[in-house]
């Protein structure tokens, strides 16, 4: 969803519209899966405007939030600091996902990637998944919520047809595309994760996958 990123003001509303409101539920589900108990250390890759960050903080997690876009991060910070219950304990890191290898190893209880792996090239995604696993303590979990290619052939055709107008609009407006991940579970397994849970929404085009180290 990089094209919405160039206009952070519209990012949240745009995402709700594009996912028919499902993104809010996805955010809740991601936060529930990642922050199992208060005090859990959670690393969020690509925090964007902080929708998931706020939910993680509200569940009592100690969040480290990473994003490469300073404008998005400013927004996220503002969102958490001006919330009904302000949160100032989040550690904000303005870096790309490929730099998580600089963070301490076996340190986090959870790693979260919401709608950001689909913006990466396959090389980058493989690197980030491998490194994410090394940041987790043994038994820690990776929670991914993202655009995926539906498993079933018929759904794939329907999904591609319905997605086309949005993809063309994104391409015309800002010249960018996030590409649905062809085999998210497979790529997570290849990085060494054990898949614990996988749910698909929106005709199978949106997935929530939890993997354990």
């Amino acid at each position: 969803m990089r094209w919405l990123e160039s206009t952070p003001d519209r990012y949240d509303a745009g995402m709700r519209l594009l996912t028919l409101g499902r993104v809010t539920r996805l955010h809740d589900a991601i936060a529930d899966a990642a922050a199992e108990k208060p005090g859990d250390r959670v690393l969020e890759i690509g925090c964007g405007t902080g929708a998931v960050t706020a939910r993680l903080a509200a569940r009592g997690a100690a969040v480290t939030a990473l994003d490469q876009n300073p404008e998005m991060m400013e927004r996220a910070r503002h969102r958490l600091e001006t919330a009904a219950e302000p949160c100032t304990s989040v550690e904000w890191i303005e870096r790309t996902a490929s730099e998580i290898d600089a963070l301490p190893a076996e340190h986090f209880d959870g790693v979260v990637a919401s709608l950001c792996l689909s913006e990466m090239s396959r090389d980058e995604r493989a690197f980030v998944l491998r490194e994410a696993r090394l940041r987790l303590r043994p038994g820690g979990r990776l929670v991914v919520g993202d655009e995926v290619r539906p498993h079933r052939a018929l759904l794939r055709v329907v999904h591609a047809t319905l997605r086309a107008p949005q993809a063309i609009a994104a391409w015309l407006i800002a010249g960018s595309l996030s590409r649905p991940i062809p085999d998210l579970e497979g790529e997570m397994r290849a990085a060494g994760f054990e898949i614990e849970r996988g749910e698909h929404f929106l005709l199978g085009g949106l997935a929530l996958v939890v993997g354990r180290r």
């Binding site: 490469q68 790309t96 980030v128 010249g175 960018s176």
Partner: peptide, 24 residues
Amino acid sequence: GINVWCASSGGHLSTHQVVTALKT
């Protein structure tokens, strides 16, 4: 998918993208 000059000036080809490409 944008050319080098426009992408660099518009924040689409920045230090981040180069670091990512070199590392991954």
